[in-house]
């Protein structure tokens, strides 16, 4: 029996049964992001404080006078989740040191969507990571500004049609390559960076648990399928997340103290991206040439990643 099978048999029973993001929130059916947040909370446990950016997850969980949060949670604005989280961390640290609160470990977590992380929140995140706060930041990336109505962000992939980068007679939709946020975080030399997807719940939970144990800043980039924005059936959330990983469009890996490691979930041979594209309306307009151009890039990027995994293995 190999290790992976072991995981399949026993690991699910070890998952925290307590729901720290309770049901009754207002997320769309099939929302991959809210599933990811729920799993993240299970992995973090109760000794957690979350600072959230404005966005879908904030709107659907905190409609006054209700709340879905069973952990302490704060929202201030769109671009500053990392700054707020760094303040929470500093406040708790000082109060604990001065004996004003109980002496126990509390993990501070900042969270935002792709816009709140990669675009408008980039500066605050870079600052917080550089300063070395003991905090985890999780980007729930659904590849566009879904809360405001599917506008393109720097996380939107090449060729996807959005409401501000629409496909048209002379346009193939998004004309830029997705910003590689995990690499930008690696460049900050933080102790732990990982990519994850709730379609692989045990892998995601394990990564959050790992990040929780890090003393210092850590970053997880979580791929979050959005049926509303991707124009796909809401029962395909899990399979689309898997396809994104299996095609190499969103490879799962970890970077621990600069050392790259491919996650066990990555297949030996990648599937063609066409299989991932076919059920998504946002790619419907793409022709063979365009798909080939993107496929070439995906292959190249994946090779680059494998090279890093191998090179850095050789160095250590």
């Amino acid at each position: 029996m190999n290790i992976v099978e072991n995981f399949d048999l026993f690991a699910p029973r070890l998952i925290n049964k307590k729901e720290l993001l309770s049901g009754g929130h207002r997320a769309c059916s099939g929302c991959g992001e809210v599933l990811a947040v729920r799993l993240m909370c299970k992995a973090l446990g109760e000794n957690t404080v979350i600072a959230s950016a404005t966005g879908c997850m904030e709107i659907v969980t905190s409609m006054y006078p209700t709340t879905a949060w069973e952990v302490p949670w704060i929202h201030v604005a769109f671009e500053n989740a990392a700054a707020v989280a760094s303040g929470v961390e500093a406040g708790l640290k000082a109060l604990r040191r001065k004996g004003k609160i109980a002496d126990c470990d509390i993990k501070v977590v900042g969270m935002a969507g792709d816009g709140g992380t990669m675009d408008i929140g980039m500066q605050a995140l870079s600052g917080a990571m550089e300063r070395g706060h003991d905090m985890l930041f999780v980007c729930f990336d659904n590849e566009a500004y879904m809360n405001t109505g599917i506008q393109r962000s720097s996380g939107t992939p090449m060729g996807a049609s959005t409401t501000t980068a629409p496909a048209g007679k002379v346009s193939m939709g998004q004309k830029t390559w997705k910003k590689n946020m995990a690499e930008i975080m690696v460049a900050h030399n933080v102790p732990y960076v990982a990519t994850a997807c709730p379609s692989y719940p045990l892998d995601f939970i394990r990564k959050v648990e790992k990040a929780k144990k890090v003393k210092g800043p850590s970053y997880i980039h979580c791929f979050s399928v959005c049926p509303t924005g991707w124009r796909c059936p809401s029962d395909q959330t899990i399979s689309l997340g898997r396809l994104a990983v299996e095609t190499g469009i969103f490879p799962l890996y970890e970077v621990e103290n600069g050392k790259y490691k491919l996650s066990a979930e990555m297949p030996k041979k990648l599937r063609p991206i066409k299989e991932y594209y076919k059920s998504q309306g946002r790619y419907r307009h793409l022709g063979e040439d365009e798909i080939k151009m993107i496929q070439d890039r995906v292959n190249k990027e994946y090779k680059k990643l494998l090279n890093k995994v191998q090179c850095l293995e050789a160095w250590s």
Partner: peptide, 12 residues
Amino acid sequence: LHPSNPVTMGAF
């Protein structure tokens, strides 16, 4: 903001 009494701050 402390786990001993979880509160939601900055609701919508």
